[in-house]
Nucleic acid binder design. Structure first.
Lengths: 334, 334
DNA sequence: CTGTTAGCGCTTTCAT
DNA sequence: ATGAAAGCGCTAACAG
């Protein structure tokens, strides 16, 4: 009765070693790729033993000795996230899997410090920041040995490189396509939790400035009809036409609802443009004009950075994609 | 060259022990609450030392010795999830924090086996299943020592206990409020990824059966206007009225869009009801009739189960909430 | 009450 | 080419 109690003890590298007739060190070497210098025969014995035993190395054991877990944390901003969040996460998960890493998703909470602490607690090899992690946070992470991905670029203080700045610009151009009119930026109610709004506003403003138009107003639009109507009412002027650039499609839908309540004609009196090209935005009437973001560019950047991190190389300097990742979906609201 | 700058070695329990003039074992005892029997003075010395050093126990070290990580994995179904996912996750995170556990979010991928493997890889103390984990998966998890939460209840094969069954019932009743008409269930396109649909359909069918109505048709509605129109067209009958119970608000919006395209009057020819009471559903025109789910009931259940798990008690038998967690939001589509 | 001791499963020099 | 040995940071018996 040397063997099993019912308590299926997970096989350890020792079990594999025994079965393959080698030492644990050898097992470790071979299973970590370092063993390309072992004779084919030994390697096969080990590999076979491992797979027969369904051996899974213990993350804890490895983490303990390396001081680093095989985890990459994905931090999502605490806002509605239009493009299908799950697709993004799935893709990152797939990518991470290619490097033998597993993914942990974390939503940025109200308290940034707490979020950061939680993230660091995982001692991740890298952190994918979709927003919600400040510059300072990233610095702290870097000091702890965790690279932040995508490296730099994003949130680059409205320098014209920031994608969100470009989004703002593009929205302004679309709203001004048929001639000048006052522009309004419709933000989420709670700015704290919105990492993208400021840069987008800056993009809007860059365009109005360039064209000698008044600086865009800024309203905060809650996602209910009463609140939205109140907010829109503060900027709509009798008989005049305005163009509203919205934080996302949901806000845009709220602004449209408010416009209906206020008796504004769309797009004549009230032009609206959203961001994200959500499915629902194309199903409502009037169909939303919106900006589609091509995440493949972002994903390529992430893939490259991930590669760099796991290879201990410096982050590759992918050239900025310019605006090609933006597409205006022409709807009925602009 | 790797920056060796802030690589400040994290303090270990040994550092704390030294600073407090005790042994590591004592530190461990005191920091794990087991030390309520230590003299106040010793305890304070240790606690102070720990906080001065900003000591954070190493998850890996602890996991290695206990064979279990301080992690609870939240598994989200790979479908649109109406009720604000983040609120749910935040709440679970808060709850977990109360027990010193950290939360990992995982979206169920296309491949269930892979998902399960990833989950088990964390050696979690518990798994919160919002859908996406099958009965078998849960059994496997249980065998590995991870409790599944909420315990039982959910997905109870359409036995009238399953919340989704109740949702189906309630939708049917609402659609039949003004008299009998054929019912249709509008599911998500990809049923594999939909853990809730079947039970909801069963709920619908229970009502039509009870009232001697024909069994509900079932259509799969993609979230684009063309596909949705095609799908709805297969069930709409010239001059007749139908009631469509939708998987969620987004599907409902798609069905309404299809109805517009097909020239159906709502709610006369085409009554529609959604699930989730999303904000956007109340902002579109016509305003959606939908079912609001009170997640507080679910959260209470989760809280209780979590308590039970960490206390090694048997899961508390909270009495089922009946249907009180369901509220029909009366809109303009039914 | 507190410390000693023994690992948990793994990687990694350093010998052989 | 392979293995022995030394921990990584922590907890849990068991002594004292």
């Amino acid at each position: 009765m040397v063997t099993e109690t019912g308590q299926a003890r997970r096989p350890t590298s020792f079990d594999v070693a025994k079965k393959a007739g080698v030492s644990r060190a050898t097992v470790s070497h071979i299973l970590n790729g370092q063993g390309s210098r072992f004779p084919e025969e030994t390697r096969n014995r080990v590999l076979n033993a491992a797979s027969e035993l369904k051996y899974q190395p213990s993350p804890a054991g490895r983490a303990l000795v390396t001081g680093r877990s095989d985890v990459i944390v994905v931090v999502m901003p605490n806002t509605t996230f239009g493009s299908n969040l799950q697709d993004l996460v799935d893709e990152v998960t797939r990518l991470a899997g290619l490097h033998g890493l597993s993914v942990v998703v974390r939503f940025a909470g109200r308290d940034p410090a707490e979020t950061l602490a939680a993230v660091m607690n995982f001692r991740p090899v890298a952190v994918v920041n979709f927003g919600g992690l400040s510059r300072d946070d990233q610095t702290t992470l870097a000091a702890s040995g965790a690279a932040t991905i995508p490296s730099a670029a994003r949130d680059e203080d409205a320098s014209g490189k920031d994608p969100n700045f470009l989004i703002g610009q593009r929205m302004a151009e679309e709203l001004l396509r048929d001639g000048p009119r006052p522009l309004v930026f419709a933000a989420l109610l709670d700015e704290r939790t919105d990492p993208f709004g400021p840069a987008r506003y800056a993009g809007l403003k860059a365009v109005t400035d360039a064209r000698g138009l008044p600086q865009p107003a800024r309203i905060e639009v809650p996602l209910d009809i009463v609140g939205a109507t109140l907010a829109v009412d503060t900027v709509s002027v009798e008989g005049a036409s305005i163009g509203v650039a919205c934080y996302n499609d949901h806000v845009a839908i709220a602004v449209l609802a408010a416009g209906r309540t206020l008796g504004l004609a769309t797009p004549e009196d009230l032009a609206v443009i959203g961001v994200d090209a959500t499915e629902v935005g194309q199903l409502v009437s009037p169909r939303l004009t919106t900006i589609a973001l091509d995440n493949s560019v972002l994903m390529r950047k992430i893939a490259a950075d991930l590669e760099a991190v796991t290879k201990h190389k410096a982050p590759i300097q992918t050239q900025d994609a310019g605006r090609e990742f933006l597409t205006v979906i022409q709807g009925e609201t602009s």
